[in-house]
Design a protein around this nucleic acid. Structure first.
Lengths: 354, 354
DNA sequence: TGAGTGCGTGACAGCGCTGTCATGAATCCC
DNA sequence: GGGATTCATGACAGCGCTGTCACGCACTCA
């Protein structure tokens, strides 16, 4: 910066003021400084600046995964917000328990970021407490964190609407497949189950716990077992609400491999509107991770700006139904599935490989 | 840090030495300092440290997209390498031309990172030159950058092997579908075409430019047209090598929607081993973005360590064939596709929805 | 025993910025 | 016209750390 000041024939203070866009710099000096800075390829050192301002100009995110539709999309929503605010994005990628223990032990974000966004971690109370005294805004993304700022979709309303869709199609026996989480991450959501139950109740359909089963994402055996349990009920479901698209696609794959027609014999509805839902022709309740990321970024900026703002703000985003080929009106038992087969395979073919 | 020093009854210098793991600290003092640091929840300010060391402790990545199998996986490979080296990851997400112009204008990474990894950008010579005088190692990921450090897979060998696979299955009329890139990004790869041609030549199969067509990812119309062009040749191909899995899946979708059996009437081979290749039962040439990310991270660390090292190092990673259901031996024209239909639909069903 | 060696520690400057205050010039108003 | 006000700019301290150097002590060896 001294070089720029010398070249422009002004003091370092003036260079600093100019480059940060302060008004009280004459047009002529501003011009000289800007030219000098450009010629010398000068860029301000954030390190030095933040040392004195106390602001790092950084927003940190804590993520358990990166190769993921949800996290990727959320970061894409977040990025432009941060750039507009002149903030940089640092990623703490914490894929396993060892990395996680290390993160909470050292808390590297302390003093090295202005805000922290926590993605989809199922934190212990102790871990949350560690974050609480981080002396920066901490925003929980895609999870309900009591007493802390968070951004998430309205799971209850989404599941309510999805279940209503199945009810409107004439279904009365509607199963619910829960995602059993890998420990440490928030995958499962009680709220979605709540919405499902709410819709059934308001429609006067009795709740039946036999219709609620669970499976583990990535463990196809558990999916096969869960589906088998439903299909072997005395009154098997004619529709199935699956808590997550990825799990729902595994269900579709299982059913179709075994020649069980979807949606003729079983309507399947997912939740998320994951990319693969489109490929698989899966009807689903869409959430927009991009919007979540954007909202989280805006909340972060707001909390950085006004440190005394409401730190327990919750932002709840909407969902909406995307009907595709995997849900259809309830067929009377008499109708033979065959007669609608051609049309169905046009709409609803899906993967079964590997 | 002064607080810690006071609490431990030592000087700031000693605290600094202790926390950075220098050997010349007595066990007793080390113990006292570490306890004090823990009790005060102290974390070193990177800002202040880097101001004096000149190292930022940061590796920056420049990416055009985040919600992507390739970038996500590569970052997952990169993350642990950086953490092991005590480096942080900052992401410059540059999704459009405006953001890109801004990035190259301001070069925010200058002085704010120790190395820069550039992902899949088709840079102009001017832009590359800007990066050259960034005074830090710049590593090009998933692209061949002449005279600059880069990490990529051996596209020629991969395409050679893939084409040999099709030749080994008895195919002689083998089409090649190129990915026509969105301007500004490296999607298309001449190397893959080279490998394809090399395999045909070594097998004594004449090259036929009519068999090489192009399509734009995401524009399904162009896929339909390209496939149509191939199928309307006087001697249509019996196998098709598609430069990218995502495009290949679009091809599968197009073919299956129109009732054209894969692999009975046309074998389809992709390149990448994208997640959807597994879903779609697509045979493909696998590359590992995780390995690419890891290698890029290790190269970055090496170049940061030894600034006078070979800055033009190229790391070329291998690929391998993953045979799935979309490639099959050439059928004699007399055989009716029907007789193998049941088995095929077990293996090779794919998406056609939306 | 005294010079030499090595080790653990402290004092202090300074990294590159920004915020504060001082300064001088220009402008204003009664 | 002279004091008050405003504005553009400069001087300087100091943010929190690290690197250098000096120091003192314990130990070694001739």
């Amino acid at each position: 910066m001294a070089d720029v000041a010398e070249r422009a024939g002004v003091s370092a203070s003036t260079v600093s003021r100019t480059l940060r866009g302060y008004a009280s710099v004459s047009a002529e000096v501003r011009e000289r400084v800007e030219r000098a800075a450009r010629e010398l390829n000068f860029a301000i050192s954030r390190q030095a600046a933040s040392l004195v301002t106390g602001k790092t100009g950084v927003v940190a995110v804590l993520v358990p995964i990166l190769n993921s539709w949800f996290v990727g999309s959320a970061l894409e929503g977040l990025g432009p917000v941060l750039r507009a605010a002149g903030l940089e994005l640092v990623v703490y990628y914490v894929p396993d328990m060892a990395a996680r223990a290390d993160f909470f032990e050292r808390l590297p974000a302390r003093r090295n970021a202005d805000a922290l966004l926590v993605f989809s971690f199922d934190l212990t109370e102790e871990e949350s407490a560690r974050l609480d005294d981080l002396q920066m805004p901490v925003i929980y993304v895609s999870q309900h964190a009591e007493g802390r700022a968070s951004v998430y979709v309205d799971d209850v309303a989404g599941a309510l609407g999805g279940t209503r869709h199945l009810l409107n199609l004439g279904h009365r026996r509607i199963g619910f497949l829960r995602a059993i989480g890998v420990s440490g991450f928030t995958f499962s959501s009680n709220e979605r189950l709540t919405g499902y139950r709410k819709a059934l109740t308001e429609a006067g359909v009795p709740l039946d716990d036999d219709l609620v089963v669970g499976a583990v994402l990535g463990q196809d055996r558990t999916v096969v077992e869960a589906v088998g349990r439903l299909l072997s009920l005395q009154q098997p479901p004619t529709a199935l609400f699956v808590e997550q698209d990825e799990l729902a696609v595994a269900v579709l794959s299982t059913l179709r491999t075994s020649g069980f027609d979807v949606p003729e014999r079983l309507s399947v509805l997912g939740f998320d509107d994951h990319d693969i839902a489109r490929w698989a022709g899966l009807s689903t309740i869409a959430q927009s991770p991009t919007d979540i990321g954007r909202a989280a970024g805006e909340l972060a900026c707001a909390l950085i700006e006004t440190p005394d703002a409401d730190r327990e703000r919750h932002i709840v985003l909407p969902t909406h139904l995307i009907p595709r080929a995997s849900t259809a009106p309830l067929m009377p038992p008499s109708a033979t599935p065959e007669e609608s087969r051609g049309a169905a395979s046009d709409r609803g073919g899906t993967a079964s490989g590997a």
